[in-house]
Amino acid sequence: MNTRNCPSLVGRRNFLKGAGVSLALPFMDSLASVVPKAKPPVRLAFMYMPHGVIMNQFWPKSQEEFLSSPPSIIQSLKPIMDQCLMMKGISGVPINPFNGAPHALELSTWLTGRLPDADSRNRINISISADQIMANYVGAQTLLPSLELATMPQTWKENQEGLHEGYYNYCSFRSPTQPVPAETDPRNVLNRLFGKRGKEGKVTQANPLDRQMLDRVLGGARDLRRTLTKGDQQKLDEYLDSVRSVERRIAAIETRQ
């Protein structure tokens, strides 16, 4: 990856300051682009904060206050406040038939906009999420189509309403049955974005041989697929899909090296 050759374009620290919060899409093209003054690409980030806020320090008392002296929690948005829109009263959507699980579905319904399939609630079956739809459209040319970050590890929760425990833990879904786990370690995020430093402090380069190797492994996986039952095949398809995306990533790095 080439970011280290263009430190003036966007420094590591600035980059993270600007974009390091949460789910984000095409991230890398400005970094990898060698064309100076290229128009910065549009980015999209979704950030989720559970457990609520202290409302009187979060919600402005009036429209005027919103722009002139916003409450403490949203102070940091002041420079762009005129582009912000705050909404409330959008909760209370019926969650039948999952009324007994008011919190279990908060995260998984947020970006999918739908409830799990009631008849297969003990498995993950919901829908692709908004961020992954975007990643499919604009993420294909970038090194990472999307980046999922979180601050807390998962813990096991007693299932409610017979729901699969995964509904508590994921907001991003690559397909109705395939949640995208998040990275919780900032060091790993840096490694993914800027390359891992090897033994001699060198940044590890993409290895074209790895891509060809993966290609053959995928061929072998397709042979295996033919011997499996339908349920197993669907699971293997998730593997094929995820390895193909790694292949694409290596190919993208190769063309930029």
Binding site: Q154, P179, S242, R249
Partner: peptide, 25 residues
């Protein structure tokens, strides 16, 4: 370095690009 996960009854038997990338690494 692999993402956290819940094991046993609530295990999510799935694989994502992030995991595949890490498996290669």
């Amino acid at each position: 370095r692999l993402p956290d996960e819940v094991i046993g009854e609530g295990y999510l038997n799935s694989i994502s690009p992030l995991q595949s990338e890490l498996f290669l690494e």
